[in-house]
């Protein structure tokens, strides 16, 4: 497991095999109910289904912006994991979200995140949330993620 997780290609395959577990193992992701749909090196796709308990504007029936924050933050973090050579945990340093237009009620929100630059200690990501295609963009995000130091051998959960 440790060997597989430190090989980028094997790690991505492992993530693809466990694609449903990637959000099922995260309580707040389970609460918002988003799913990962596609995994490529440095690039992740996901979907946030429309759910009434996530509404932030009852008059318009629109999902709260914070749900998009959750979705894009999480996908960005995962895109770092698919971009790295050796596996490291990452933690969000900052995340900026610009809202282009309100999401439509009762429509799923699609999203993708890309890790476009890595240094030894920081990963830089951008992400998009949209309906159907990228030209119907709801929000864009830009974030920096701290890459944790390698853990001593044997301390990784297997």
């Amino acid at each position: 497991m440790t060997d597989a997780i430190n090989d980028p290609q094997k790690r991505i395959e492992l993530m693809r095999e466990n694609i449903n577990m990637m959000t099922a193992a995260v309580p707040w992701a389970r609460e918002t109910g988003f799913q990962v749909t596609k995994i490529e090196p440095g690039h992740i796709w996901g979907v946030q289904p429309y759910k009434e308990h996530l509404i932030g504007d009852p008059e318009a029936g629109v999902i709260h912006g914070g749900v998009i924050t959750t979705l894009l933050d999480n996908l960005c973090g995962m895109s770092c994991t698919t971009a790295m050579q050796e596996f490291r945990f990452v933690a969000t340093l900052d995340l900026r979200i610009d809202y282009m237009r309100p999401a439509e009620p009762k429509q799923d929100i699609l999203a993708e995140a890309e890790c476009y630059h890595l240094t030894r200690s920081v990963a830089f990501c951008r992400a998009w949330a949209y309906h159907e295609t990228r030209d119907k963009v709801i929000a864009t995000a830009q974030g920096a993620f701290a890459i944790n130091k390698a853990r001593p051998k044997g301390s990784m959960p297997s």
Binding site: W28, T32, G56, H64, G66, T69, T70, D73, N74
Partner: peptide, 12 residues
């Protein structure tokens, strides 16, 4: 805590 939960709380 999930960063998204913290972000949602702060935005609200």
């Amino acid at each position: 805590l999930h960063g998204g939960a913290i972000g949602t709380f702060l935005e609200m």
